[in-house]
């Protein structure tokens, strides 16, 4: 009986995390389209529900009732697995995100490594989908996306090292608490910019959406997918974007901490601050989508390997020597 009650408690906790994440993914898609429309002086989705808030729900319903088509020449098992993998990976990463000092599903020692590992596994959903479709455009899209994600992961990893040098712990809560006096966005501002751009590339957002560049590759790795399977790719993608925003908020914007440590602000629960910071980053993501034209592929690779990697590596040396010289290294 004890086991059962523990299991039920954990399932309850997990549901309490996953359901809000899924709902906010739907809302975030709406927000994305509204911001995009706002920049282009259009209305955007504004018909279904108040301000069009229920648009994503209507879309989801439409996808559920559509027929799932599996190409006859595809590799069926892997074809079906691909969207499931994408979606699962996008959701399991949320387990370690701290919403306040105590509200975290799994407060593990290596939280940031876990986040990094899960986001680096995200490439498999795309490769599997692209290869199993057994068709030219999806395959090209998958190859492009794999190369792109592997390249930008390197610089994200080095940026994480920068933050870790200042914190001295891999635990996400420790990272947040270390920013009590100053958010890392101030001393590490160049790293924040590089992290933001790399996050765009890592989640295949415009201007780096080459894996699904509609002018060249129809829809990239998603070309052969339809109905609910397509919707799962889409949900996974947006859940990943939200996750990247959460990672940015935790690493650079002080996570669940209130911006000023004075009385009325500290009353607001940490989860609200974290959500506000995620929203801020997401609106930046959406604005970039609206105002920046798509990169060419060789320019994308050049930016990743020849600009971001040397820059962030140099910054690691700089941070480390600064901390060492002024004896600020976090030692415990």
């Amino acid at each position: 009986m004890e086991y059962l009650s523990i299991v039920f408690q954990e399932v309850y906790k997990i549901l309490f995390l996953i359901v809000p994440v899924l709902v906010s993914v739907a809302m975030i898609v709406w927000l994305d389209r509204r911001v995009w429309a706002f920049v282009q002086k259009r209305q955007g989705p504004n018909v279904v529900g108040p301000f069009g808030l229920l648009q994503s729900l209507a879309d989801a319903l439409k996808y559920i009732f559509k027929e799932i088509i599996i190409p006859s020449s595809s590799n069926k098992v892997i074809f079906i697995l691909a969207p499931i993998v994408t979606m699962t990976l996008a959701l399991i990463a949320w387990a370690v995100i701290p919403f306040s000092a105590t509200q975290v599903l799994a407060d593990i020692n290596v939280g940031i490594l876990y986040l990094f590992a899960v986001s680096s596994l995200g490439v498999y959903g795309i490769i599997m989908g692209g290869w199993a479709s057994n068709s030219k455009y999806p395959f090209l899209g998958a190859i492009r996306s794999a190369a792109q994600m592997v390249s930008y992961e390197v610089s994200i990893g080095v940026i994480i090292i920068n933050v870790l040098l200042c914190v001295g712990s891999l635990n996400l809560n420790d990272i947040v608490i270390a920013q009590q006096n100053m958010w890392f966005v101030i001393p590490l501002f160049p790293m924040f910019v590089i992290f933001f751009i790399s996050a765009l590339a890592e989640t295949n957002r415009p201007p780096f959406d080459l894996p699904e560049a509609e002018a060249e590759l129809v829809a990239g790795y998603q070309t052969e997918y339809s109905g609910m399977m397509y919707a799962m790719f889409w949900l996974g993608e947006y859940a990943n974007i939200l996750l990247m925003c959460a990672m940015g908020a935790i690493l650079f914007l002080g996570g669940w901490m209130s911006p000023i440590d004075v009385y009325p602000f500290t009353l607001v629960p940490g989860a609200i601050w974290l959500i506000l910071k995620i929203l801020l980053l997401f609106i930046l993501f959406a604005l970039v989508k609206a105002i920046v034209p798509r990169y060419r592929y060789d320019q994308l690779m050049r930016l990743g390997w020849k600009v971001f990697l040397p820059l962030s590596l140099t910054w690691v040396v700089l941070t480390a020597s600064y901390l060492f010289y002024f004896n600020l290294l976090p030692v415990n």
Binding site: N109, Y114, Y124, W131, I143, E153
Partner: peptide, 25 residues
């Protein structure tokens, strides 16, 4: 050994196996 496990995921699954897949595909 949570550090080793995570590094295993990042290095082998996240990078090495992707290159394997590239070559094999």
């Amino acid at each position: 050994a949570e550090f080793l496990g995570m590094i295993m995921l990042i290095v082998y699954v996240g990078a090495v196996a992707v290159l394997f897949l590239f070559v094999v595909m």
